[in-house]
Design a binder for these strands. Structure first.
Lengths: 219, 219
DNA sequence: CTAGTTAATTGTAAATTTCAAATAACATTT
DNA sequence: AAATGTTATTTGAAATTTACAATTAACTAG
């Protein structure tokens, strides 16, 4: 037992995705205390003793403090650890990523979100965390309903289409996309509800129970 | 800082998959010390201070102690934590899963491997870890070369086919399977090398660099 | 009532997947 | 040497899915 870790810091860090101007963005927080006081970083914090069921509790607390409510989609990402990642000592960071529809955020929060592909230099090992989060998001987007969690409860087919293109980072055929999504049954039309404008009204849809559930809960 | 965790136990636990009698099995270890002394459990141990880069170091150490060499495929699975999961106190377990070709193991190790679907009652939250590991393996098997890491360096198309069926848990069409796998370019024939027997010789293949790399390393 | 804009459908070609069956290449037995 | 058994590998046609291009639909604004 003598070579085991004594007093590691146990923390959570979160990558909070949202969409601004049709681009995939991250919500950062300015650090209130050293180290790296005043620097933009991923929102995070220490795990509390009473958060004894799961570190997702701590992640939710961190996210609520930042945006004021629970993210519609939250998933554990990866655990980083070691003596080098934090100057305060041997630490374990259990990281999470969350998807947050910009419609739920304050205007000011949305305005502060920064494009995932053009972030400022981040402290600690946060760049690695971001890289992994983007990788996971892209990967899951190709075979699940994940990107839909970046949209509000009701959305049009084209909005969904654009979100998928944005998160996957590639063009997707409109007709095929519509076909496949409807085929999978992960969304359903809201009867008689349309988004209106200077054009043909667009059918509104919502996620069904076949869509991926938050927290990767299965059944 | 007063509500943060003081002296958490930081450990790794591993789910070690192998194939015995064409069935997906796990290699368990009998616990040498309390709690649950003498009980079969997932191989695990405390993280050491000098394992300061990444807990994968600790996972590799645990695996080497159990089987004597490094697993060809190792990936971080999930991090479990809390006050309830271990009677010794608040703990963090960073879990890993590994794929180990039975050809590399001692006969006795293979004989002791137990079918993943019929394990004895496991201590701690090890049943949850196993469930997640199987889920991850099945999921990745559907879109990657993962199951190939359960086979030795050279294998026939049918061996690969059976491994995929076993890990996914469903029938796969032979012709389509062969087509898709070769299409993806994740394996290549070993020229002039065949597995012989009382039947037509079977072409031997090996993984190419297009196959999934261990440790989820990209590029 | 026409132009502009986005939504949604349609049709056809191309590609992929499925399914069933045939053929190939041995070792072993007769 | 020929027949048999066994597994490997290929083939071909049907069914399904996907890609691509174009058309039609439904509104608002001027």
């Amino acid at each position: 037992m003598e070579r085991t870790i004594r007093q590691p810091l146990v923390m959570v860090d979160t990558a909070l995705f949202t969409i601004r101007n049709e681009r995939l963005c991250l919500i950062l927080a300015r650090r209130q205390e050293p180290p790296f006081e005043g620097v933009l970083a991923l929102p995070g914090g220490f795990v509390h003793v009473e958060e004894d069921a799961d570190t997702a509790m701590a992640a939710r607390r961190v996210i609520r403090r930042k945006i004021g409510f629970d993210a519609p989609y939250l998933e554990q990402l990866f655990t980083f650890s070691g003596a080098a990642r934090d100057p305060r000592g041997w630490s374990v960071s259990i990281t999470y990523y969350a998807l947050i529809p910009s419609a739920l955020l304050d205007q000011s929060q949305v305005a502060e979100a920064l494009p995932a592909e053009a972030l400022p230099p981040l402290p600690f090992d946060h760049p690695q965390i971001v890289a992994r989060a983007i990788e996971r998001l892209r990967s899951k987007a190709t075979y699940s309903s994940l990107p839909a969690f970046l949209l509000p409860a009701a959305f049009t087919m084209n909005e969904l289409h654009r979100i998928y293109e944005q998160t996957i980072g590639a063009r997707l055929d409109k007709a095929s996309f519509r076909h496949k999504i409807l085929e999978q049954g992960i969304i359903e039309p809201l009867s008689e509800q349309f988004r209106v404008g200077a054009h043909r009204p667009a059918q509104l849809y919502r996620l069904t129970s076949k869509a991926l559930t938050p927290f990767e809960r299965k059944i």
